Simulated scan of single mutants.
Amino acid sequence: MTKILLIVHVLAAIIAIGPVTVAASMFPAAARHVLAEPDDGRARAVLRNLHRVCRVYAVVGVVVPVFGLATAISLHVLGDTWLIVSMVLTAVAAAVLAALVLPRQSAVLEGPADVADTRRLAMYTGMFNLLWATVTVLMIVRPGSTTSV
């Protein structure tokens, strides 16, 4: 059962978090393009689609910590420091996405926005991505485990 939980956890992370990180990273540059060419309907549609990807996959991404927690319980590592740090960083990443990235994407879509807004959004997106990268490294290295060298 542990292997199934771990497989679902990893697949969910790849399928759900990957698209959010990519779409969120593309959004600020696409927004600057829309600001530069406000009559470009195709660019505006791309921007709306990137935001939709972020919103939908953020909701789907809830599966990742749920199955991660189930896997941790199954492996009896719930009290390990690397896992606690990973859970805290995951919560912070979710908060950054929910409180900073998604609302600012919506604000840019609703307008008016300027280049400074897109730069702030890029910074928040970078924070989100860095948090997820750190969690990924912790999941792979697992300090103190038999697989870490």
Rank of each mutant, 00 (worst) to 15 (best):
K3A: 14
L5I: 09
L6C: 01
I7R: 03
I7H: 11
H9I: 00
A13T: 14
I14E: 01
I14M: 09
A16R: 11
A23Q: 10
A23W: 08
A24G: 07
M26G: 07
P28V: 05
A29H: 02
V34L: 01
L35G: 11
D40E: 06
R42Y: 04
R42T: 11
R44S: 05
A45E: 15
L47T: 00
R48Y: 08
V53C: 09
Y57C: 15
Y57R: 07
A58L: 09
A58H: 13
V60L: 14
V66M: 08
G68Y: 00
G68P: 00
G68F: 02
G68V: 00
L69E: 14
L69M: 13
I73T: 12
S74P: 13
L75R: 15
L83M: 15
I84H: 05
S86Y: 12
T90R: 03
A95I: 08
V96N: 05
A99T: 11
L100W: 12
V101M: 02
A107P: 08
V108E: 12
L109H: 01
P112M: 11
A113M: 10
A113T: 04
A113C: 06
D114F: 02
D117R: 10
R119A: 07
R120C: 05
M123V: 15
Y124M: 15
M127A: 14
F128T: 03
L130C: 07
L130M: 10
W132T: 07
W132F: 14
A133H: 04
V137R: 06
S145K: 04
T146R: 01
S148A: 15
S148L: 05
V149D: 00
V149G: 13
